[in-house]
Simulated assay, not measured.
Amino acid sequence: MRLSEFDRAMADQFGAGAGAVRTDLALAAMGGRTAAEALAAGVAARDVWLAVCDEMDVPAERRYGVGRLEQRRH
């Protein structure tokens, strides 16, 4: 997962609250760091996304493949 995909996934799932989730929610799986802190420390965006999903009880169907743009049709 690229950082841009992480950002899209956060916006799609949390809307206007995505920024607050990113900077304010302490993630147990990340040692109490926020998503922003974990990303800044070099943790893979996919791992951070899954940690956010666990903390926020995001349903499984919303966790995988989100944030990806649709394939362009030629």
Results as ranks from 00 to 15, higher is better:
residue 8 R to Y: 06
residue 68 R to A: 14
residue 9 A to E: 02
residue 65 G to C: 05
residue 26 A to T: 08
residue 41 A to G: 04
residue 42 G to I: 14
residue 51 A to R: 03
residue 5 E to G: 04
residue 73 R to K: 11
residue 64 Y to G: 06
residue 29 A to G: 13
residue 50 L to V: 04
residue 32 G to M: 05
residue 9 A to T: 02
residue 68 R to I: 12
residue 33 R to E: 10
residue 13 Q to L: 15
residue 61 E to R: 15
residue 33 R to V: 04
residue 12 D to F: 15
residue 72 R to E: 12
residue 64 Y to I: 09
residue 39 L to K: 07
residue 44 A to D: 15
residue 74 H to L: 12
residue 50 L to P: 02
residue 13 Q to N: 14
residue 16 A to T: 15
residue 8 R to F: 06
residue 22 R to K: 12
residue 61 E to I: 15
residue 8 R to K: 10
residue 54 D to F: 07
residue 58 V to F: 02
residue 36 A to K: 03
residue 34 T to M: 02
residue 38 A to R: 01
residue 72 R to N: 06
residue 41 A to Q: 04
residue 16 A to C: 13
residue 6 F to K: 00
residue 47 D to H: 12
residue 43 V to R: 12
residue 71 Q to H: 08
residue 13 Q to M: 15
residue 31 G to L: 05
residue 7 D to I: 02
residue 58 V to E: 01
residue 16 A to W: 08
residue 25 L to G: 02
residue 67 G to Q: 06
residue 15 G to M: 11
residue 19 G to P: 00
residue 9 A to C: 11
residue 58 V to S: 01
residue 38 A to V: 04
residue 66 V to F: 04
residue 51 A to M: 07
residue 6 F to I: 00
residue 24 D to T: 10
residue 66 V to N: 04
residue 10 M to E: 01
residue 50 L to Y: 09
residue 67 G to E: 07
residue 14 F to V: 11
residue 25 L to A: 10
residue 18 A to L: 09
residue 26 A to R: 12
residue 56 M to P: 02
residue 72 R to I: 10
residue 38 A to Q: 06
residue 38 A to H: 02
residue 54 D to Y: 06
residue 64 Y to C: 05
residue 5 E to D: 14
residue 70 E to R: 11
residue 22 R to G: 00
residue 14 F to T: 07
residue 49 W to P: 00
residue 41 A to D: 02
residue 10 M to H: 01
residue 66 V to K: 06
residue 69 L to M: 12
residue 7 D to L: 06
residue 22 R to W: 01
residue 19 G to V: 00
residue 60 A to Y: 11
residue 27 L to D: 03
residue 15 G to W: 10
residue 70 E to Q: 10
residue 22 R to A: 01
residue 42 G to P: 09
residue 39 L to H: 10
residue 71 Q to Y: 05
residue 17 G to K: 14
residue 65 G to H: 04
residue 10 M to S: 05
residue 5 E to I: 03
residue 54 D to R: 13
residue 29 A to I: 03
residue 2 R to I: 09
residue 65 G to I: 04
residue 25 L to S: 05
residue 64 Y to M: 08
residue 39 L to C: 06
residue 51 A to S: 13
residue 19 G to K: 01
residue 32 G to Y: 10
residue 46 R to N: 09
residue 4 S to V: 07
residue 4 S to N: 08
residue 48 V to F: 04
residue 22 R to I: 00
residue 11 A to C: 10
residue 70 E to N: 08
residue 58 V to T: 09
residue 44 A to G: 12
residue 37 E to D: 14
residue 50 L to A: 03
residue 47 D to T: 13
residue 55 E to P: 02
residue 68 R to M: 13
residue 63 R to N: 07
residue 22 R to F: 01
residue 24 D to N: 11
residue 72 R to Q: 11
residue 39 L to V: 10
